[in-house]
Write a protein that binds this DNA or RNA. Structure first.
Lengths: 348, 348
DNA sequence: GCGATATGGGAAACCGGTGTCACAAGCAAG
DNA sequence: CTTGCTTGTGACACCGGTTTCCCATATCGC
């Protein structure tokens, strides 16, 4: 009877494996980590015992010895559930079959000590790295904080926010430009715009795309064709009411996200306007709601899950790919999805 | 110059604090963990150094020494983003300001080796505990697996699935009964029902509620007034088409979730029917979409976030409350939210 | 047959905390 | 002045891995 027998119920440790296989801890460690300097016999024997015992290395002990854990964090303050979940899916896809796990951390943008809160989170947990979701990813002080603490990070955003190694971005500006161009090609010349909230990079980029397209087409519009929104359904509804009160009123409205586009649709419906006959609507994001409302919404598909996957890959690559420096792209293209919410403008 | 000086960049360790404060590791540990057997002077001095150095205990080392980590897992296979995110919020609210973190793990219900996959997840990470979301929480083998492995768990569900200490449930059956009774009180006597997918406890409970209400009101309906759905928008649409093809057709339809209710709405619209004038609709869940569509949907609010919070509390209580055995309730009430999608039936 | 060189494998230190126990100091009781 | 108890603190082993270093053996060239 060995002095140190395995307690029932508790997990087998490396010592158990070593004892039963008749080798040292280190050899077991070598087998588990696939060291090449091993006799095939030894390897087989140890593997046999590992399998039989169902031995799984203790991640805490590993993390301690390696001075590095295998947790990647997702810091977000995005109110859109679809988006957040897609990002989670993307990250999880990237770390599937690796030893990494995903730890989520929503933060409150409004909170005064938000940055301090995140610092504590990062320092306490000593995460391997974090993915920063928009809009909080646009916060430069946060990125600076990560650098200070020495925590790897990747920022997701609507424009180039950081060095390629530390960000993944989508080309919102171009995508919106194309969407507006599509409306113009359909014959629209009075196009309303519902913006995102002030200070958000995505809002700025999307608006720039809007202006690019108008300028390219030589269209001049009064400032009033741009209404402020804040990415919520209600704000879209309110903004649309303002736009539809204009005279002449717009024949098409681009909303900076789908949720606001749904609000625009609601506003149109309340006035008895038919979409797309009386008013064309284009959204942004291609959330499920876009295809579930009536009429299905023409919108810009934002490859958020792919971006998230890539972000996680950038974070973990150094470990999994053995310094291979596979360069994951840092720019992702959004594309226009044409559904039924756009038609040529009504003849006056 | 101490032999073991702190490297720049790396975090201070307990040894650094001990050395600088002129005490032993153990004393620092005592201070950090708030042991009462301490001289006030010593405590002050150590706290001073801790603060000055910004010392934070290494969670991996702690986890190793305590043979217990501070990660709680969320295992889910729920396709509804709103629901999943609400559950995450609930859990996070419960563990706010504790040392626990949330690790998410979506699983694929279709996958043959799903259980094995989850076992690996649980064994590898040695989580403190897991919250099991519906529908996978209804899987008894999974609960059995948790017990075998010795992993604490709490199942969320629509009925009593387990001992009170291991579950939180909502009273779906009663809630649906009340909702249907409300329709009956409005004058409806032909009420269609769109069910959830076969084998889901929530689907069964909701259907039982439906039948309870009809029976209580003495209403007999043909079997065809119940149409199968699977909680997706499309299935709701299809089910509604079948129901609306009936003659006489129902004057009200209850859908077992909001997404399907949205599909029902869509189907009605396609036929040129007005909601609620020609058809009343009631959903279940009270997801944001319910209040964003037109007309706003009368639906059953399911206190999912509260349930999740409670689930997490049950899990962590033993640690944070020092065996206090605060009994967190295990039953939560769903309530009917009355909006504009219900009206008395049209006169024939 | 000899030393030189790979190669497989083990002993012990270490990662950064916590638990156990011993011990010293202070103080009351005998 | 001992004895005994309480209180505050430290030494040391331990959690379960990895890393460093070193030794034993097998292989090789001469």
């Amino acid at each position: 009877m060995a002095a140190k027998n395995r307690e029932n119920g508790s997990q087998p440790t490396i010592n158990d494996v070593a004892r039963i296989a008749g080798v040292s801890k280190k050899t077991v460690s070598r087998v588990v980590n696939g060291s090449p300097l091993l006799n095939d016999d030894t390897r087989k024997r140890v593997q046999e015992v590992v399998k039989q015992l169902g031995y799984v290395p203790n991640p805490q002990a590993r993390a301690l010895a390696l001075r590095r854990n295998f947790l990647i964090g997702l810091v977000h303050d995005n109110p859109n559930a679809q988006t957040v979940l897609k990002v989670q899916q993307g990250i999880l896809e990237a770390i599937r079959d690796t030893e990494f796990e995903l730890v989520v951390r929503p933060v409150d943008r409004g909170m005064a000590n938000m940055l301090e809160d995140i610092r504590q989170f990062l320092e306490r947990q000593r995460l391997f790295g974090v993915v920063l979701m928009p809009p909080i990813s646009e916060n430069d002080s946060l990125a600076e904080l990560c650098r200070q603490i020495g925590c790897r990070y990747v920022r997701m955003g609507s424009a180039e926010l950081d060095e390629p190694g530390n960000m993944v971005a989508s080309n919102d500006r171009e995508a919106v430009r194309d969407a507006i161009k599509y409306l113009i090609d359909q014959g629209h010349s009075r196009i309303g715009f519902v913006s995102g909230p002030h200070g958000f990079r995505s809002a700025i980029e999307r608006r720039l795309g809007f202006e690019d397209a108008l300028e390219a087409a030589g269209i001049k519009q009064p400032r009033s064709m741009i209404a402020d929104g804040n990415y919520t359904f209600e704000s879209g509804l309110l903004a649309a009411e303002r736009l539809l009160d204009l005279s002449p009123r717009p024949t098409a409205i681009f909303a900076s996200n789908d949720e606001m586009a749904t609000g625009v649709l609601q506003a149109a419906r309340r006035r008895g306007m038919d979409v797309p006959t009386d008013l064309s609507i284009v959204g942004f994001d291609d959330t499920p709601i876009a295809s579930h409302i009536w009429p299905p919404l023409t919108t810009v598909r934002w490859p958020i899950a792919t971006m998230a996957r890539s972000a996680a890959l950038k974070l973990t690559m150094s470990v999994t790919e053995g310094e291979q420096e596979v360069d994951e792209p840092s720019m992702f293209l959004s594309t226009l999805i044409r559904r039924s919410s756009v038609a040529p403008p009504p003849r006056d």
